[in-house]
Structure formats: C-alpha cells, structure tokens
Amino acid sequence: MLPVGPIVDCLGALLGAVLGSVIGHKIPSRIREGLPLTFGIISLGMGISMVMKVHSLPPIILSLLIGSVIGEGFRLEQLVEKIAFKVKRPIDKLFPNNQSSESDDVFMQKFVAVLIVFTVGPTGIFGALNEGITGDASMLISKGLLDFCTAAIFAAALGYIVCLTVIPQMIITFGLFFLAGVIMPLTTPEMIANFSACGGMMMMATGFRISGIKNFPITNLIPGLILVMPITALWMMIF
C-alpha cells in the first residue's frame, strides 16, 4: 500500500518551508512577526479541542509528570537546541541573504515549537497509524495542507533551517505507517482518547511558547506522549 498521507504531509511541509525561505525576506517584518502569533492562537485552539476528548485525566497527569522527569533527566530540550545551532551555522553561511532575523532565544523558541508540531503532533501520529490500517489518507492530507502554511510562516522568519524539520517528520510518519499493523491492534478507544488529550496539552504548551507567553520546555514532555497509552491501559486494569 502506497503511503499517500505521509508523502503529502512531508511534501507539504517541505514546499512550504522552501517557499517561506525564498520569499521571506520580501515580507515586511511586522507580518513575519505577526503570523506566528496567529499560529500560536490556532495551536491553543487545537489543543483545547483535543483535550476535550479525554477519557480519564489521572493517566495523562502521571504520563506528563513521569515523562517530564525523564525529559529533564536526559536534557532533551538542550540536546535539540545544541543540534539546531550546529546546523544553523552552515546553513547561514550557505544562504547568507536568508539568515534568521530573530535573536538566538526567539529563534530557538520558535524552531523547537515548529519541530514539535511537525514531528510528534498527535494528528500526524494517529493519521499515519490510521492510514496504515485502513488506507484512509484524509487526515494526513489535511495536515499536509496545514503544515504547508505553517512551514511557510515560520520559514519566513527562521529561514531554510525549517526545511530540516521534514527529516524527523519523514522518519516518524513513514515508520508509523509501516508499523501500524503491529501497533493499532494493541490499542483501545480509551487509550486513543487519552493519547489525543495528552497531545492536546502539548499543543497548548506549544501555542503558549509560539505566542511568547511562556517558554515551556516542550521537548522534555515527549516521553509523556509515549507513556500515556501504556499507563492508560494499566490504569484501566487496576481501576
């Protein structure tokens, strides 16, 4: 079965990033600064709608708490930042007219946020798994259209480095598509609902970060997204 959804999703993000990088310097700074704020509001709205799908809150709380401890212990946020800055330097030399206009702190704040949205957003993860089982690519095609706009918006401010976020996005979406036959039979509707709600909380944190309200260490929360399904299954067995 051809992975139509992952192809469209990743291609949409890549084309958006290239377009935003090429024309970004022609866009007035007030627009480049204002558009990410708009996406911050969108991310908050998406997060709220996903949280409303929650089945049981305690497993989500446990998952985020344990996941945050693991993330802080392994310094996942700092690791991503170090890699991003190392990659940013040669890209800035290769495209000297397309360097980010943001300060280092603001650059990293936005880059990590868009990386999380593209790679570990629940819509992409569930969409890849769902297509791998049912062949329905509609969810990832819709996400691809949104990612095109999102990538263009952020690439206009951050430059060509946004194109590199497609690499982990491809690894995750294609990997989940081909592993769907193994993963999905192990899940239940309750596990899916809590996974979506946990991802919604991460999307809300991403919205706060993009908007500059609070710089949540989103990367450190990723282990919680991995833990929420098994913890939900264990919770249901006990209670």
Results as ranks from 00 to 15, higher is better:
176 L>M: 00
127 G>F: 01
218 I>T: 08
151 A>L: 05
209 R>Q: 04
214 K>N: 12
151 A>H: 14
128 A>K: 03
146 L>N: 08
201 M>C: 15
161 I>T: 07
183 I>K: 00
147 D>S: 05
218 I>K: 09
160 Y>A: 11
186 L>A: 14
188 T>K: 00
163 C>E: 08
200 G>D: 05
194 N>I: 00
202 M>Y: 14
128 A>S: 14
185 P>C: 01
126 F>C: 07
177 F>T: 08
147 D>H: 01
165 T>M: 06
191 M>S: 11
173 T>Q: 15
154 F>T: 00
206 T>H: 05
127 G>C: 05
145 L>A: 15
136 D>P: 04
191 M>Y: 02
204 M>P: 07
198 C>N: 14
168 P>I: 00
178 F>C: 03
133 I>S: 09
206 T>I: 10
193 A>P: 05
179 L>Y: 11
211 S>G: 15
164 L>H: 11
160 Y>M: 07
137 A>F: 08
204 M>G: 08
133 I>Q: 12
178 F>T: 03
184 M>F: 15
148 F>H: 08
179 L>E: 15
200 G>A: 10
140 L>R: 01
138 S>G: 05
205 A>K: 02
133 I>Y: 10
206 T>S: 08
152 A>M: 13
169 Q>C: 10
139 M>G: 12
189 P>R: 03
212 G>S: 07
187 T>S: 14
210 I>D: 07
159 G>A: 09
154 F>L: 05
188 T>I: 06
144 G>H: 07
185 P>S: 06
164 L>N: 10
152 A>Q: 04
173 T>S: 14
172 I>D: 02
164 L>V: 01
131 E>Q: 14
174 F>D: 00
180 A>T: 11
171 I>L: 06
143 K>E: 02
130 N>R: 09
158 L>T: 03
132 G>A: 04
202 M>V: 15
154 F>Y: 11
192 I>W: 00
180 A>Q: 12
156 A>E: 06
131 E>H: 05
135 G>M: 01
140 L>Q: 00
147 D>P: 02
151 A>R: 12
153 I>K: 11
133 I>C: 09
153 I>F: 12
183 I>D: 02
